[in-house]
């Protein structure tokens, strides 16, 4: 295959399981924190666990904000996972005063529930629109979550899936070739691998 999948390593948690899952799907994967490798990539994956503020600081410090914005603006298939989804938005309750990438309008909120936080474990996806990432999936497939915060988009048209955890929250977003998932496809068995395969099959499509 002529593509190069770049998994951005910016010091925010372990990226190995993402790398391994993509490799299992047959992708040529490179884990890197170099801006020019992101520019060279055909597909960009932004994983991440940890705090919103730390993630933005690390992206800034490593001069990765512009390359990430460019990749999205160029219509390269882009996948934000977990914190990598959250930083696509404008701000987060987790880190007051820190600006996110602002690729999507809206903010990130903390769960307020009598249930356990973090929301940890398997839960279902309720699809809200046609989305190439979820092509060939059954009804409400199970995927694996670990998170205390969730995204609250201001524009409903980017919402691709909802999940119920003491009320519905947005578990996947899609706009053009830019996708974000709150769950971990790399830990979600066959369903997760199918999502990654679907992602790898996409080609760039400028907005």
């Amino acid at each position: 295959m002529d593509h190069l999948v770049v998994v951005i390593d910016y010091g925010m948690g372990n990226v190995r399981s993402v790398e391994k899952a993509l490799a299992r799907c047959g992708a040529a994967v490179e884990v890197t924190g170099q801006p020019e490798r992101i520019r060279a990539a055909s597909h960009v994956v932004l994983p991440g666990v940890g705090a919103f503020g730390d993630a933005m600081w690390e992206l800034k410090r490593r001069k990765l904000i512009e390359p990430v914005r460019e990749a999205i603006a160029d219509g390269k298939p882009f996948l934000g996972i977990c914190l990598g989804l959250q930083v696509l938005f404008e701000r987060s309750e987790e880190s007051a005063g820190v600006a996110g990438l602002g690729v999507l309008a809206g903010e990130v909120k903390r769960f307020r529930t009598h249930l356990k936080v973090p929301h940890m474990g398997w839960n279902g996806l309720k699809f809200q629109k046609e989305c190439p990432l979820f092509a060939g999936m059954g009804v409400e497939p199970f995927v694996y979550f670990v998170h205390s915060y969730y995204v609250s988009p201001r524009e409903a048209d980017c919402v691709a899936a909802l999940t119920d955890y003491d009320g519905e929250f947005v578990s996947a977003v899609a706009r053009g070739r830019c996708f974000g998932v709150q769950f971990h496809p790399e830990k979600s068995q066959a369903v997760g691998l199918k999502i990654l395969e679907n992602f790898l099959h996409l080609r760039a499509m400028p907005l």
Binding site: M12, G13, V49, G50, M120, V146, H147
Partner: peptide, 8 residues
């Protein structure tokens, strides 16, 4: 928790 995230 700071370095790898509480989740893990």
């Amino acid at each position: 928790a700071m370095r790898f995230g509480s989740d893990c």
